[in-house]
């Protein structure tokens, strides 16, 4: 019998696909803004929301959305004020979230095992109702991340420039925070609140090893979010571990595999940049092996450079120096 024959596995896999798309979609903007750890903090805060649900008997999905969104708005306000003590304020909010969550869960009479299913995910606990909420929220988050991409890109790339472009930067900033909060709740059942941030950040970090444009980084990150999410859930079916752990480990394996490729690409690009540096630094950089002499007839475009003539060769400039050529 295949795992696909079980209703709970079907639901868990659908939730995994949606989470695998939504988390890196928001995560790309968070990483671009250098707020990679924001998802982590929101996961902590959402735990208090889950506990409120356990205590009151309301659906934890809704209470955690509500509390995480409030937390996200609080974080955004503190960030916008830009005070020196902002990081301390945020740290206290995060610790408060975890401590409040554990405390209220205890008051509600729930066990640590219940709490664990929210912290690290659990493939058997995605109810049909949960799945509907998760699906609607995930689709909204993904649609906003794609539909508002030009605006969100501008705000995350350079906030001040975006403001002088007339964009409502505060509004977009809050929107990103709220999208992150909603994603935390979407991801709660599969990857769990403590590890959700990994699924926002690791696929993006892996993706940018291989890419040079925002668009491809974004697209590849979504693919790199879905694959480990699905693989992790399937792994948890066969081996009884929390899916959060297997998803994040699978995601990290992807990063470790991409890293050598990325460093090779970077070395190549760095070499291309270094070919240009001598113009700035005036350093003496002899060109690599040279099969012919540059002259007006060699076919390489000649470029006047101060008191001498350079020849454009494969994207860099060669200048005659004694019996070899320098990179200019």
């Amino acid at each position: 019998m295949s795992f696909l024959d079980y209703d709970f596995m079907q639901r868990a896999l659908i939730a995994a696909v949606l989470t695998g798309l939504a988390a890196p979609a928001v995560g790309t903007y968070l990483v671009q803004r250098r707020l990679a750890l924001m998802g982590d903090g929101l996961g902590h805060v959402a735990l208090t929301g889950v506990a409120v649900g356990l205590l009151t008997g309301w659906a934890p999905v809704w209470t955690s959305v509500a509390v995480a969104v409030l937390g996200a708005l609080a974080i955004d306000v503190v960030r916008a004020k830009g005070r020196a003590s902002a990081d301390v304020a945020l740290a206290m909010l995060f610790y408060g979230g975890i401590a409040g969550g554990v405390l209220i869960t205890g008051l509600a009479g729930s066990t640590a095992a219940t709490l664990n299913t929210y912290l690290f995910g659990s493939i058997t606990t995605v109810s049909a109702d949960d799945l509907w909420v998760v699906a609607v929220l995930a689709v909204v988050v993904i649609a906003l991340a794609v539909g508002l991409a030009p605006q969100l890109f501008a705000v995350c790339q350079d906030e001040e420039f975006a403001r002088v472009s007339g964009l409502p930067v505060r509004l977009y900033s809050m929107l990103i925070a709220v999208m992150a909060a909603v994603t935390v709740t979407v991801a709660m059942r599969t990857v769990g609140l403590l590890l959700v941030s990994a699924l926002m950040v690791v696929p993006v970090a892996t993706s940018q090893q291989l890419t040079r444009s925002f668009r491809t980084t974004f697209g590849l990150a979504l693919a790199l979010g879905v694959v480990p999410s699905v693989a992790g859930v399937v792994f948890s079916y066969y081996v009884d571990v929390a899916p959060g752990a297997s998803i994040v480990v699978a995601s990290l394996v992807g990063f470790v595999l991409a890293w050598p490729v990325g460093s090779l690409l970077r070395r190549r690009r760095a070499a291309a940049v270094n070919g240009e540096d001598p113009r700035v630094t005036g350093a003496h950089v002899p060109a690599e092996q040279h099969p012919h002499q540059h002259d007006p007839a060699c076919g390489h475009p000649a470029v006047e450079h101060g008191d001498h003539t350079d020849y454009l060769h494969d994207g860099h400039l060669h200048a005659a120096h004694g019996r070899h050529y320098d990179e200019h």
Binding site: C156, D158, L167, Q208, T211, F214
Partner: peptide
């Protein structure tokens, strides 16, 4: 910024 972007992508932000 924290994610790669091409020259064209950054310049296009100025058109918003």
């Amino acid at each position: 910024a924290g994610v790669p972007a091409t020259v064209r992508e950054v310049v296009a932000a100025g058109r918003l």
